[in-house]
Design a protein around this nucleic acid. Sequence first.
DNA 1: ATAATTTAGTTAACATATTAATTAGTTTGC
DNA 2: GCAAACTAATTAATATGTTAACTAAATTAT
Lengths: 141, 141
Amino acid sequence: MQPTKTDRALPLALLRARETVMSPIRRVLKNHDVTDQQWRVLRVLHENGVMDAKELAKSACVLAPSLTRIIKHLEQKNMLTRCADGKDGRRVLLAILPSGAALIESVTPEVQVIYQGLNDKYGAQKMSDLLDLLHDVVELR
Amino acid sequence: MQPTKTDRALPLALLRARETVMSPIRRVLKNHDVTDQQWRVLRVLHENGVMDAKELAKSACVLAPSLTRIIKHLEQKNMLTRCADGKDGRRVLLAILPSGAALIESVTPEVQVIYQGLNDKYGAQKMSDLLDLLHDVVELR
DNA sequence: ATAATTTAGTTAACATATTAATTAGTTTGC
DNA sequence: GCAAACTAATTAATATGTTAACTAAATTAT
């Protein structure tokens, strides 16, 4: 194996796979006027309830500076609220608002269809194997 | 399987895996004053010789507008050259220059070490399986 | 041949990624 | 109890991602 050869380079393979998967999903998100990062943030918040910014950033896989801007943006759209933590003056607590939840619930079924098509074409077993291998990569950290 | 559950979502898993792999590599690249995209562009060009912008963009997995900017940047650093294609006035032909090649050759060994460590910890067989599965994802396109 | 279409590349506008520096609040050490 | 160290979040600066619009060159169709 030649790890530096472009055609067997892991980072590039991960990027290409992500592009393939995200491309049709992005079209759906575009129709609903959200970027995929904004969608990720809202989704995580929808699943987990109230979270502070650090937890949210880690779960949604966005960096803190990006999250600051995304929050600002989503706050103006009334998708989420920001409030200070009473116990720790540094922390910012975030919660999804009804219009944010409504967005999630209207987008999710459309995305489900795409995921299902992907699963059918790719194979459920392979998909599961792939997810396991990807999680193992993250465990190396 | 719940494709919309964040903890089994393929795009997020791909993103997280990429972060894990790229993070130490980025530190190396940072020391050599290149971003990973610039490095990818130079690497592909180094492997393939003269290419036009479209081929390069596809191989390096960067979008055309990004490539335009990256080329401008790398041209100013004398890492590559741009010249018009005689046969097709629209095309731009690109070739790596000695200082670009020198950069690749000085960075590659350091990155090799990181890849090797990753391979050792993760396991060569699993790595190969993962790359195969990722290539299969791209084939779905 | 020439108008219509297609293609390659660039530019524009906005959003995010990345690192570093900064600010404000909290904890630790002595 | 207070200075030092740490932590959470924001701001700043530069580079890239993403879509759309645009320009120029080449192809196609009639």
